[in-house]
């Protein structure tokens, strides 16, 4: 077979190989995408190399009352402390833990008007479990979120940069209704009032996986 006859065959073979490589690359990368951690492994061993996808799991547990009981009859100046523990129970380290709070109900408790009237939320951390009975931290406490009007927390706010696999985050949530004067006359509250209002607050804690790693070995 002369060179002119060989060349088209070689081009067809190469063209087919490129297509196969491209398709194979797509398939390979897609499979890698499905693996939660984006982990990759390469082996030249004749023995199949197992590759396990990591898991990113965040669980929340009440400490003491936590979120298990509603808050009722809150008066201006009242402060409610609730304690929860977030656990990273997956195999992957978590990062960028954020909090959002959405609400439904009376806006008077959520959104400030001309004055500061609505509920505020602050979040404190402790490197050991909170004493839910006293609201104290026997270890080192830190402020993760300064008091913020609840209505402003619909967009995520950062709490911690990382939560390693197997680690726990001990949180104290400080709900407060700012002190304010309201005088009820003959049984009727003023036009703008925080009295007798109800709201359902949905707390969302979210974290993402830690940065992808390239491992060698």
């Amino acid at each position: 077979m002369d060179q002119e006859q060989q060349e088209p065959t070689a081009r067809r073979w190469t063209r087919g190989r490129r297509a196969a490589v491209a398709v194979g690359t797509v398939a390979g990368l897609t499979v890698a995408s499905v693996v939660l951690a984006g982990l990759t492994a390469t082996t030249t061993s004749p023995v199949p190399q197992p590759v396990d996808g990591g898991e990113l799991v965040l669980t929340l547990d009440d400490v003491g009352t936590g979120f298990s009981t509603a808050v009722t009859d809150l008066a201006p100046g009242d402060v409610v402390l609730r304690h929860v523990r977030l656990d990273s129970t997956g195999s992957l380290d978590g990062a960028d833990l954020t909090l959002t709070v959405t609400s439904s109900g009376d806006a008077a408790l959520v959104t400030d008007g001309a004055s500061t009237r609505a509920l505020t939320l602050a979040v404190n951390g402790c490197d050991v479990a909170w004493d839910a009975g006293t609201g104290t931290c026997a270890g080192t406490a830190s402020t993760l979120l300064a008091a913020t009007t609840v209505g402003l927390l619909t967009t995520p706010v950062a709490l911690v940069d990382e939560l390693l696999a197997g680690a726990s985050l001990h949180l104290q949530l400080v709900l407060a209704l700012p002190d304010q004067d309201e005088t009820t006359v003959d049984g009727a509250p003023p036009a703008e009032t925080v009295q007798g209002a109800t709201v359902a607050l949905t707390y969302g804690f979210t974290m993402v996986q830690r940065d992808p790693l390239t491992t060698t070995g």
Binding site: L36, A37, G38, L56, V57, L58, T59, L60, F67, A70, V71, T72, D73, L74, A75, R82, V84, L86, S88, G90, L92, G94, L109, L119, L175, L177, T184, P189, V194, Q195, G196, A197, T198, V199, A200, L201, T202, Y203, G204, F205, T206, M207, V208, Q209
Partner: peptide, 15 residues
């Protein structure tokens, strides 16, 4: 890849 945990707390003010 994200993990999310949500919880609802009902709250009411007194009068």
């Amino acid at each position: 890849v994200t993990a999310r945990s949500t919880v609802v707390l009902d709250l009411s003010s007194g009068s």
